[in-house]
Amino acid sequence: MWILLGITAWIAGWALNVWLAGRSASKITALMVPILFGLTLVLVWEALVRGFGISPVILPPPSAIAARAGESGMILWEDFVQTVIKGALSGYVMGCAAAIVTAIVVDRFDFLRRGLLPVGNFVAALPVIGIAPILVMWFGFDWQSKAAVVVVMVFFPMLVNTVEGLRDTSAMQRDLMRTYAAGYWTTLVKLRLPAAMPFIFNGLKLASTLALIGAIVAEFFGSPIKGMGFRISTSVGLLQLDLVWAEIVVAAIAGSAFYGGMALLERAVTFWHPSQRKGR
């Protein structure tokens, strides 16, 4: 019966999504399609787990995950504050702000661009599991070390995007500013920074996902008795897979909201860009 219910849910969800996708594009339709697809996956997951009698130690059903999330609301909130607010968000703000300031300095002095960007590409390729234990030893086991890991992860991708954005102006545009007797800083503020905004927001969106990943992974190498990474590692050892999945769901929602917020801010700031006008 459960397997039949899963197959029925999949067919019904597929047909409904095809019908919605064929209708005229609107904000409501664009929102409903992913929501219905997600609900279909949850229903199929629940039906298959129960239909095949899969052990909750291997894969708990969504209903068990939701029940555990309701029971452990305070734990999930404390872990969210420790990992997302203190670790990921603080490191994200510091890393991105430092990268933008450094990009302006690098753009002003060409020898820094030639010397620093190759080093940045090297550091960006370092695995987080390699640098996290070192930074935990340097900054301690609290959120400061997780913020340091996030800074390292987001700094160079943000730097590269900002530097490329600052160079994304045509010779005609720069010549026009010179005819107005505009100096370097005037040209930077009125021409080059606005032109770089699509690149900057691309870096901000990329860094928003890296920040959360970095903060969670860093907690595997040392953390106080709270945090998403800490809770996931200890709950796996205790075979509390429903709590592990509850933490994963919270992290996914936080990451999606973080990315979506950056995308909405990008639309508000870069409304003039052709890519944004096309989507309207």
Score class of each variant (00 low, 15 high):
T40G: 04
L89C: 06
K27S: 08
G115I: 01
V105L: 12
W10D: 01
L20K: 02
N17E: 14
T40S: 09
R68D: 10
F37S: 15
I7T: 05
V42A: 11
V33L: 09
D107G: 11
V93L: 13
R68P: 00
S26R: 03
E78N: 15
W77R: 09
V18C: 12
G6L: 02
T83V: 02
W45P: 03
L39Y: 09
L36D: 05
W77H: 04
G120N: 08
E78T: 15
W45C: 05
I54Y: 06
D110A: 15
E78Q: 15
W10H: 04
P34G: 03
M32V: 12
M74E: 11
V44L: 06
A21K: 13
R114I: 05
F37V: 08
P60Q: 08
A64P: 04
I58C: 09
V49W: 03
W45L: 05
V123Y: 10
F37K: 10
A97P: 09
W77S: 01
V105N: 01
V49A: 10
I100Q: 06
V57E: 14
L16S: 11
F80N: 00
P62N: 06
L36T: 09
V18P: 05
G53L: 02
M74P: 00
W10I: 12
S90N: 11
L117Y: 07
I35V: 15
N17R: 08
W19D: 11
G38N: 13
V105G: 02
V18I: 13
L76Q: 01
G13F: 04
F52M: 03
L36P: 02
G38M: 12
I28M: 12
G51N: 00
F37N: 14
T29G: 15
I11H: 02
I85Y: 12
F52W: 04
L36E: 05
V42M: 12
I100D: 05
R23C: 08
A47I: 01
P61H: 10
F80Q: 00
R114T: 09
L48I: 10
A124M: 13
V49P: 02
F80H: 01
V18Q: 14
R113F: 05
V42L: 15
F122P: 07
W14K: 11
V123A: 13
V106S: 08
F52S: 00
P56K: 10
V105A: 11
L48H: 00
L48M: 08
A98P: 07
V84Q: 01
V93C: 08
G51D: 00
F111M: 04
V81A: 10
L36G: 10
V44D: 00
C96M: 13
V33Q: 08
W19E: 11
E46D: 13
R114Y: 05
V119Y: 13
N121Y: 14
G51S: 00
S72Q: 14
G115R: 02
E78V: 13
G51I: 00
A98D: 07
L117Q: 07
I75Q: 15
F37W: 11
I85F: 13
T29Y: 10
E46I: 07
L117K: 08
I28L: 15
N17M: 12
S55G: 06
A88W: 03
L16V: 13
I54G: 03
G87K: 01
I100W: 11
E46G: 06
T83W: 02
V101N: 04
V106K: 07
I11V: 14
L39P: 06
G120T: 06
R68V: 05
